[in-house]
Write a protein that binds this DNA or RNA. Structure first.
Lengths: 113, 113
DNA sequence: AAATATACATTGGTTTCTTATGTATTGTAC
DNA sequence: GTACAATACATAAGAAACCAATGTATATTT
């Protein structure tokens, strides 16, 4: 199953921030692959969604970047700034709260303890 | 706490369908009030979002309508069509699956069994 | 040598929602 | 009895976020 795109709307930034929280630094392509792997292909980030989001987070001072060359190929690493770490905690906790509300509203039984 | 609007994106139709599944028929204003009440004001549907969604669901054959007059004031009741009942089950189960994926991805502990 | 994977990025379009506005009736508080 | 809030519908203009497509280029596998 691949989720309908409307479902994923609004969660992309939270996913990016969580991955960066756990991994110190990651580059764009790596993020798409990690999400694909962790969700068993259920969530597939498109580049057209990912890169603008990364750029927006950087412009907001939430992410910092370092560019490196692997051979001749450029690679841009993203990391959480101090502000980013705070924002990440808030976003995840807001999402957790939202999920509990939705679970109650939709009367859903979950299968993960 | 009122959730940031981006979080709610993509969930509106699922919420509408779930309420109609439980209540046979409801009118627009009633839906806004019920959601507000059930979520303790955390989710407040705006009319500008609700009515276009209801109209779209009706146009897709997912909802049927009956108009009644309460005194001189018009009230438009919405109900699930046969197709709508099927779609509702699919939507809720897709959302439940999505929540489990997100819970795993964000490493969230839930407080509802 | 060709195909696939890696790695960045932008552009045009669509969907979905927000804010604002509009109309009208009914109930409540002063 | 009149102003305000609540009830109840609706649309329109714009913003935000995402998707699909396209573009460029290098590296690896077959």
């Amino acid at each position: 199953m691949i989720y309908s795109s409307e479902l994923i709307k609004g969660t992309l930034k939270t996913i990016i921030l969580k991955l960066l929280k756990d991994n110190k630094r990651m580059y764009g392509y790596e993020i798409t692959q990690r999400v694909k792997e962790l969700t068993h292909d259920r969530i597939q980030l498109t580049e057209g969604a990912l890169y603008p989001s990364l750029h927006a987070l950087e412009a907001d001072g939430i992410l910092t970047t370092e560019t490196e060359y692997i051979g001749k190929r450029v690679r841009k690493y993203y990391s959480l700034s101090a502000k980013g770490k705070t924002v990440t905690k808030e976003k995840i906790s807001e999402f957790a709260d939202f999920m509990n509300t939705m679970k109650f509203l939709l009367d859903i039984k979950t299968d993960i303890a």
